[in-house]
Amino acid sequence: MELKNKKNRRDFLKNGALLTGGMLIASGMKPFSALVYATNHNEDAEHWYGMAIDIEKCIGCGNCAKACKIENDVPEEPFFFRTWVEQYTILNDGSKIITSENGGLNGASQDYTPDEIFKSFFVPKMCNHCTNSPCTQVCPVGATFESPEGVALVDSTYCIGCRYCVQACPYGCRYIHPKTKIADKCTLCYHRITNGQVPACQEVCPTNAKIFGDLNDRSSELVQFIKKHDWQILKPHMNTKPKVVYNALSGEVN
């Protein structure tokens, strides 16, 4: 009886070691990582689209939000947005006030006098087109995917409107379309960028605060901008690896 127990323990340890080692090896193998991660950075991709947003240049006019609604048939109600503008106001007492009246559609207003304000700035928000996008990861039917150019898109015929992606997006960039009842989001104006145009929000921006471009093209305006400025991404701790970067992003932004 005692001998048998000893044999069992040895077997147990041996099997355990085999199992752990096997799992370790399997986790490093490529076909398995495809199962674990829904999105993968395609290193051989011809284009790898992204956008830079220059906070120093944004004047909060809201033309981007307005143009996006027209360009992409976003519902009119002021709580459906693919892109919107937030106004940050830091008061002298340190309190932080974030306003986005109608998503900045009709411009911005300031309730505080310059004497009360420590600093104030605008932050245009949009889909960050993450390299590790949580929305793609959580979709139970595979309706959200990343195009070969790195643009997070929705297959409208696959989406079942379960709202999981709306919950998963750390940047609040998704909504359920009230008519079609499926998930809708910024496509980086996929129909425009594949046709040699810039996204609608950039087209109408009066101060050139948005710069669309190809991250794989070192001569593109975007890469040159990234080269010359101290840029930041939103919520780096989420490990989403966004392709939308901000210049002069203040620490107060969340």
Binding site: E56, K57, I59, G60, C61, G62, N63, Q87, Y88, T89, N106, G107, A108, S109, Q110, Y112, P114, I117, S120, F121, F122, P206
Partner: peptide, 10 residues
Amino acid sequence: TCHSRNPARS
């Protein structure tokens, strides 16, 4: 919308 005075504008 662009030209009204706002401390957030440069």
